[in-house]
C-alpha cells in the first residue's frame, strides 16, 4: 500500500517538476539564457488563472486559457524587456552579458513577484481545478486532478518532442542549440528562432504554473522556491539537456515523495539537495550533461 502510494503520488509531482524544468532548460540550451524569473512567470500565470476563474467567475477552462496567455505574455515581456536589450547592447562587454542577463532576469522576477503580492496579496491561491473528485487506483484514493496533472504534463512534453523532432521549425531550433552560427549560415534568422523558443517556453511555464496552482496552490512566496527547484533539477540533469531534465525531475520527485512518506514531511527536500551536492562534486556537468 505504501509502495503504491509513493509510486502514484511521486509520478504526478515528478511530471509537474518535469514540465516546469523543460521550458527552463530549453531556453538555456538554445539561447544560453538562465532565466531566473522562471518561478515568477509560473506564479503569474497561476494567479491570472485563479483571478479569471474564481474572481471574475469565468470558470476553469477560460481561467486556464487566461493563465496560459499570461504565461506567454510574461515570457515575451521577459525576452523583450530584459534579455534582448542586454543581448543587443554595445555598452556591455560580450563576456559580461551572461551575468547581466542573470541579474536582470532575477530582478525582473522580483518585480513580478512584488506586483503579484501588491495586487493580489501574498495569500496562497488555488486555481479552480478542471476535474474534481477522487478515483481509486491500485487501492490508493487518488484525486482525479492528480492524474489529470500527470496526463497534461506528459501531453505537453510529447508535443514539445514532436515540435523539435518532426517540424522544420523545431529542427532549426535544435540546430541553433548545437551551432548558432551554422544556422545563420543556412539563412535562418536567429532572432526568429529565439521568438519561437520564448513562445514555447511561455506555454510550458504557464501550463506548469496553472497545474501547480490546481494541485498545490501558489502564492507570491512560491516564486523563489520554484525557480530554485527548476534550477536544481536542470543542473542535476545537465544544463541544456531536455531528456536529462526529465529524468532528473523524476529522481527529485520520487526522492522527495519517498522522504516525505518514509522519514518525515518536514525533511522532504533535504535528500534531493544533498544529491545535488554529491553530483556537483563527482560529475559537475550533471547526470546527462554534454560538456
Amino acid at each position: 500500500m505504501l509502495f503504491w502510494q509513493i509510486l502514484i503520488d511521486g509520478f504526478a509531482i515528478s511530471a509537474l517538476y518535469a514540465l516546469g524544468a523543460t521550458g527552463f532548460t530549453l531556453i538555456f540550451g538554445v539561447s544560453g539564457v538562465l532565466n531566473l524569473s522562471h518561478g515568477a512567470i509560473m506564479v503569474g500565470a497561476a494567479v491570472a488563472a485563479w483571478a479569471a476563474s474564481s474572481e471574475l467567475g469565468l470558470g476553469p477552462y477560460a481561467g486556464a486559457l487566461v493563465g496560459v496567455v499570461t504565461g506567454v505574455v510574461l515570457s515575451f515581456a521577459t525576452y523583450f524587456l530584459t534579455v534582448r536589450p542586454i543581448q543587443t547592447s554595445r555598452k556591455i562587454a560580450e563576456a559580461e552579458k551572461e551575468i547581466f542577463i542573470l541579474t536582470a532576469t532575477l530582478l525582473w522576477g522580483i518585480i513580478i513577484q512584488e506586483a503579484i503580492a501588491y495586487l493580489f496579496t501574498n495569500n496562497a491561491k488555488t486555481v479552480l481545478p478542471i476535474v474534481d473528485g477522487v478515483v481509486i487506483v491500485l487501492g490508493v484514493r487518488t484525486p482525479s486532478n492528480e492524474i489529470f496533472t500527470a496526463f497534461v504534463c506528459w501531453f505537453a512534453i510529447g508535443l514539445l518532442w514532436l515540435l523539435v523532432n518532426r517540424t522544420k521549425r523545431g529542427k532549426a531550433v535544435m540546430a541553433a542549440s548545437m551551432n548558432p552560427r551554422g544556422v545563420t549560415l543556412l539563412g535562418i534568422e536567429l532572432s526568429s528562432i529565439y521568438l519561437t523558443v520564448w513562445a514555447a517556453y511561455g506555454l510550458l511555464a504557464g501550463t506548469a504554473g496553472i497545474l501547480l496552482g490546481m494541485f498545490l496552490g501558489v502564492s507570491s512566496y512560491s516564486v523563489g522556491p520554484l525557480t530554485a527547484s527548476a534550477f536544481s533539477i536542470v543542473v542535476l540533469g545537465g544544463l541544456g539537456s531536455v531528456s536529462g531534465s526529465l529524468i532528473a525531475a523524476y529522481v527529485v520527485g520520487y526522492l522527495e515523495t519517498a522522504t516525505a512518506y518514509l522519514v518525515s514531511p518536514a525533511y522532504r527536500t533535504i535528500p534531493a539537495l544533498l544529491l545535488l551536492v554529491v553530483v556537483m562534486y563527482l560529475r559537475p556537468q550533471g547526470l546527462f550533461g554534454r560538456r
Binding site: Q5, D9, I13, L216, G217, Y221, S222, P225, E256, T257, A260, Y261, P265, A266, R268
Partner: peptide
C-alpha cells in the same frame, strides 16, 4: 502529533499518514 514545515507544499503524505 505531526508538525510540518510552514513551507510544506504537498500534504498528500501527511494526510495519508
Amino acid at each position: 502529533h505531526i508538525r510540518m514545515s510552514p513551507d510544506t507544499t504537498d500534504f498528500t503524505p501527511i494526510f495519508n499518514k
